[in-house]
Amino acid sequence: MTEQIVPLHQKAYEVYLPLVEDVCSRTVSEDELSHLLDYLLDFACDEKMLRLYKRVCRKYLDVYPSCIRDYIEAYWEMWEDEGELENDL
């Protein structure tokens, strides 16, 4: 199973990296932000994908603080790694 997960995470990273770069290069609506974070959250167990998730959260923390707080809590609930994301933001 691990043999299948690693390539899947790599493919997800390749797909989402340009989307993250685009979203971080401009200011998007909260709906567009939420849409992207929903998809990134599904892969946030992978270190590279978690870095993308954090990058987006950092970029928009001051713009949409309650939305970002909700996504931090969602990360904690889904991946149960409370300290890592909070400490890095």
Rank of each mutant, 00 (worst) to 15 (best):
V23N: 00
W79L: 03
Y53F: 14
S34V: 14
S25F: 04
S66K: 14
L17T: 10
Y60K: 05
M78R: 15
I5H: 03
M1R: 07
F43P: 05
R55L: 07
G83M: 13
T27Y: 09
H9D: 00
V15Q: 12
S29H: 12
D38A: 05
H35E: 15
L50C: 06
D70W: 11
W79Y: 10
E3D: 08
A44K: 05
A12G: 03
Y53A: 00
E32T: 09
D81F: 12
T2E: 09
P7S: 01
R26P: 01
D81Y: 11
D70C: 12
D42K: 13
L37A: 07
K54V: 14
C45G: 14
Y39L: 11
R51E: 14
L37H: 10
D31V: 15
T27K: 11
S66M: 11
V63C: 10
R55T: 07
Q10L: 08
E21Q: 08
C57R: 00
Y75T: 11
Q4T: 07
L41T: 09
S66G: 00
M1W: 08
W76C: 09
D62A: 13
D38W: 08
Y75D: 07
L85R: 12
K11F: 09
R51L: 11
H9E: 06
D22Q: 06
L37W: 10
V20Y: 01
D88G: 11
R26G: 03
E47G: 07
E82F: 15
A44P: 08
D46H: 09
T27D: 07
V6K: 12
E80N: 14
L40R: 03
D42I: 13
L61K: 13
E80W: 06
S34N: 14
E82T: 15
A74K: 15
Y53D: 01
T27C: 07
A12Q: 08
I72Y: 03
L36T: 02
I5D: 06
R55G: 00
E82D: 15
C67F: 03
C24I: 04
H35D: 15
E47Y: 09
E77N: 13
I5K: 08
L89Y: 06
D70H: 14
Y64V: 04
Q4V: 06
Y39I: 11
P18S: 04
C67D: 04
V23G: 01
E47C: 02
L37Q: 04
T27A: 04
D46C: 05
E80F: 08
L19T: 01
A44I: 05
Y16C: 02
Y53C: 02
K11P: 00
D38T: 08
L19R: 12
D31P: 03
D22F: 09
